[in-house]
Amino acid sequence: MENLSAMVSAFGFNLSLVTANIVLPVGISFYTFQTLGYTLDVYKRRIEPERNWISFFGFVSFFPQLVAGPIEKAKSLIPQFNQGRVFDYQSGKEGLEMVLWGLFMKVVISGTCAVEADYAYEEYMTLSSPQLVLGQFFFMIQLYCDFAGYSLVAIGVAKLFGFHLSANFDYPYFSRSMQEFWTRWHITLNRWFGDYVFTPMIKKYGETPFRVWLVYLFTFFLIGLWHGPSWTYVIAFAGLAVYFIPRVFLNSKKRYSPVPKLGDLLDIFLLNLILFFHLIFFRSDSVSGALLFIKQMFSEGGWDWLATMPNEQFARLAFVVIFLLVEWMTRTIPHPFAGSRWPSAFRWPAYLLLFTWIANYMDKTQPYIYFQF
């Protein structure tokens, strides 16, 4: 409505619009996706309609993933409500380990990064280039740990009840291309758009390179709008379609070795550099604010600040870097405790250390970022 008013004003007319501020239920987009996917699957005869009301509404409102996913398909989750289950010790143990590591990511790491990221975006007009670069780096880690941590908690809690939910993150910042990144970030959302938007449009309109790229553009545009009716989200996500051009027009599909080589490390760095700038639009309140942030980041001077970085800030940076190193060393498993053969003498002190950290940070933690979506 605001864009319509601005467009009409450009032609010399004054359009007075009345809009309503609608309060939406928490998590509405996630269970809307699940029920819409169910409806489409039934319509396309991929699944049979569910006759058991308890199983169906359990699928719609399953509390661990109700407010933020993972977004589950009916064919994978509804049958789990229709089968009996007994408590399994190993599954419960794995679930608690996922909850513990997920809370550590969400409460401790994301909370630590939020302090620096919020400061950078609140005071960006007065801060130097390195301070803004560091602030944006902290925001990238905050966003990832906030969402990936929450997803791990949801998956872990579901395991305690004998349910198996889909993985939602797979170390996305270690991806080597934009295509790989979108198979590892918010996996269930991207799978949903792939199954119900991208693939049907490709089948309908053909697979010529230009049309495929337009469908990529449209899909990312919708993902941006899903985050909110703001041009910042549209730019942050629709702009990512540009990086699919080599794949679509040049048919460029790299094959990566399991062990990263020097070239792979360069690809990882370049990908994160791209995300670094796109996520400035994601975090900013307006397009003009994002552009000012970037402009200030490239202002001259201020690099001597690195030599006088406050000890508290340096400690937060070192803490986050150590966390990233742990993630890198365990990138082939879902989380550091997964499939662990660590002796009890090592595991239990690690459990207690993480639990203590979480307890100390609990009153400092920030609201979950994706609640607003």
Rank of each mutant, 00 (worst) to 15 (best):
Q179S: 11
L40M: 12
H335E: 06
E122P: 14
L36S: 13
E180M: 09
W185Q: 06
F56A: 15
S284W: 03
R247G: 09
W101I: 02
L352G: 12
P246W: 00
Q131I: 12
R211Q: 08
Q90M: 12
D146N: 03
F293V: 07
W357I: 11
R347P: 10
M7E: 04
E72M: 03
S91D: 14
I358G: 15
I322K: 15
G239M: 01
T39I: 12
R283K: 15
P200S: 11
A120G: 09
L265W: 12
V107P: 04
P367F: 02
Q90N: 10
K254N: 09
V115C: 08
L134E: 03
H227R: 04
A318N: 13
W305T: 15
F314Q: 10
F138K: 08
Q65E: 12
F13P: 08
F13H: 08
L160D: 08
E300F: 09
F161L: 05
Y216W: 06
L36P: 13
N251I: 02
P367V: 00
P367M: 04
I235E: 01
S286L: 03
Y351I: 02
L17Y: 07
G84N: 02
F314T: 13
Y205P: 01
T39A: 15
H164F: 07
G339S: 05
L306V: 09
A359S: 14
Y150T: 10
S340C: 05
L152F: 09
L127H: 04
Y205C: 05
V153D: 12
Q34P: 05
G239D: 00
I369Q: 01
K261G: 12
L17S: 09
P70G: 00
A315R: 14
V108F: 10
E50A: 13
F57W: 03
V42C: 10
I28C: 15
R191M: 04
F13Q: 07
